[in-house]
Amino acid sequence: MDTRSRAARRLRRAWKVAQIVLLYTALVSVALVTTGPFLWLLSTSLKTVGNVYAFPPQIIPRPVSLDNMIGVWRLLELQKYLLNTIHITAVGLFLTLVVSALAAYPLARMEFPGRNLIFLALVSTLVLPNPAGMIINFLTLQKLRLINTLPAVYLPSIGNAFGIFLLRQTYLSIPAEMEDAARVDGAGELAIWWRVVLPLAKPGIATLAIMNFMGHWNNFLWPLIVLQDPDKYPIATALQYLEGMFQDNFRFVAAGTMFSMVPVLVVFFSMQRYFVSGLAGALKG
């Protein structure tokens, strides 16, 4: 009896260990697939000797060197581009969040004429094409005298249907009782939105922030069109200088790409915690 229960316990423990091993094996193998190309770029950026195209490929760099990182930083003077990128991303992201959070509120909570029309218009932006959009927006910004300014880079993408829909969805999942209570107390809609709704919508906002961040950060074509002065370029645009007939250092390309990617990963890593815990918290509350 005693031995049998011990055996059973041992079996259960072994099963549990096996489960965890299996789980981690699965987690690691998926991670290898998703990060493989990134790891190769990282490894290439840390190599200084040998053939980039070696067959069979060399995975672990030997010796590890930061020369490419330093070299590409100095060649392109990346610090100024990094500052531009941070500016564009920070302001662009902030405005996207504010504008979407405002617009989503009446769509989630109020009945008003024109609502369906607005919905239709928002959805249509996801589907309808605008092949000449780049040219037309360029002309508009020119008329607004915004060409060659950083706002020209982020303004066109601030109002977007996705952000509004995502936050509307979040608002809908928040019980309306608290708002009604605040309304009874005589609070205005703006105050309710700011004090009651927004704090509860944090997970949705975090999700939108994560998803929107990289759009601003990695955008390279549009800045090139609207900025005339290369000193205003974001880093993704500046890295284009590494590709060309006379630019032949593949390791620099890899190193430069690392500079553009790592900040995004750091942001996701830190926001991700908040996003998940915030989401769980909101759902409990």
Partner: peptide
């Protein structure tokens, strides 16, 4: 309430009118 609703929507609508709807409408013309 309607006015309030549109006040909330205003920034998004203005920006989208200029940079999203207008190019789309132009696209439907061209």
């Amino acid at each position: 309430r309607w006015v309030t609703a549109y006040a909330f929507l205003l920034p998004a609508l203005v920006l989208m009118a200029v940079f999203t709807f207008y190019p789309i409408i132009m696209g439907m013309v061209i």
